[in-house]
């Protein structure tokens, strides 16, 4: 009957809660992710740390590679399109990916506008650094929000900054008067009606996940305790020395994020995590989080 309502899109995001969504670049990695307990995979040609290293233009993945991953696993398969590149999104829709990530990890196609996501049957996830950005994306039709962090850095500091910012702004909204909410909407560049919803709910109107820099079970636990409802792990798994074990450990730590004994056990005996970058090693113009408007 009805199969593209916003509720159905958000419904899938609800089902991904409490889980780990892993970046994978081929079917073998996708199977490792599924066997480790990932609740979804993100199919992309190069993981963010390699995109950062290789430079050049980063685009939507080859459909063949996405189709291969869809064949290999039974869990939802997500894929990325460039910011504003609705033709790439249309292709991903014909491939029937389960979620489209309009992602700052790829090179933006439009420096002013994002995709109008309401036009699509498939749900979208978009990144944000603050509440205003989150609500602009939801206004465009995003069914899930993820805080951006700094993809491919292996450094949790930006993910924390963005989650803290969103949560602080949500708390602030819940305390404002009706009059003040209008001024606040103007200040943060958010649609008034959505900010009013946030003020009433005390949370975003769609699930709020965390991404960008998660490399260890403790990182996952930290983000969940700060208010993330699921975590995305990109380079952190397949740039580590033992992806299968690390993937499983991050899954366990995400489920039991408040149980430090289980997180400690999950953290024990893992081989090296990805090396990671200090933010001072990434010039401001090279930061992926700056992309998105």
């Amino acid at each position: 009957m009805s199969n593209n309502s916003f509720e159905i899109k958000v419904g899938l995001a609800e089902m991904l809660k409490g889980g780990v969504i892993m970046d994978v670049t081929n079917s073998d990695q996708a199977k490792i992710a599924e066997d480790a307990g990932a609740c979804a995979v993100m199919a992309l040609e190069r993981i963010p740390s390699d995109i950062r290293k290789d430079g050049g233009i980063s685009r939507m993945s080859d459909p063949e590679m996405i189709l291969g991953i869809q064949k290999a696993v039974s869990i939802p398969v997500m894929a990325k399109c460039r910011i504003g590149h609705f033709a790439e999104a249309q292709i991903l829709e014909t491939l029937e990916v389960d979620f489209i990530d309009e992602s700052e990890v790829l090179t933006p196609a439009d420096e002013h506008n994002h995709v109008w996501k309401h036009n699509f049957k498939i749900p979208f996830v978009c990144g944000c650094r603050d509440l205003g950005e989150a609500l602009r994306r939801i206004a465009e039709g995003a069914a899930m929000i993820r805080t951006k962090g700094e993809a491919g850095s292996g450094n949790i500091v930006e993910a924390v900054r963005h989650m803290r910012t969103v949560m602080t702004e949500i708390k602030r909204a819940t305390r404002l008067d009706k009059e003040e909410l209008i001024a606040e909407a103007k200040r943060i560049g958010a649609p008034v009606s959505l900010l009013q919803q946030v003020a009433k709910l005390g949370k975003l109107p769609v699930p709020n996940f965390a991404a960008g820099g998660i490399a260890t079970p403790a990182d996952a636990s930290l983000m969940m305790q700060l208010g993330a409802e699921t975590v995305f792990v990109g380079s952190g798994i397949f740039k580590s020395d033992d992806p299968a074990a690390r993937a499983k450990a991050v899954v366990e730590a995400t489920t039991h994020f408040e149980n430090s004994e289980i997180v400690a056990k999950a953290s024990t005996g893992l081989k090296n995590a990805m090396k990671g970058l200090d933010m001072s090693e990434i010039a401001k113009e090279d930061r992926l989080q700056e992309r998105g408007w």
Binding site: M1, N3, I8, L12, E96, V97, F99, I122
Partner: peptide, 8 residues
């Protein structure tokens, strides 16, 4: 099928 077939 996949999410595109999800429905009410």
């Amino acid at each position: 099928g996949r999410q595109v077939m999800s429905s009410q």
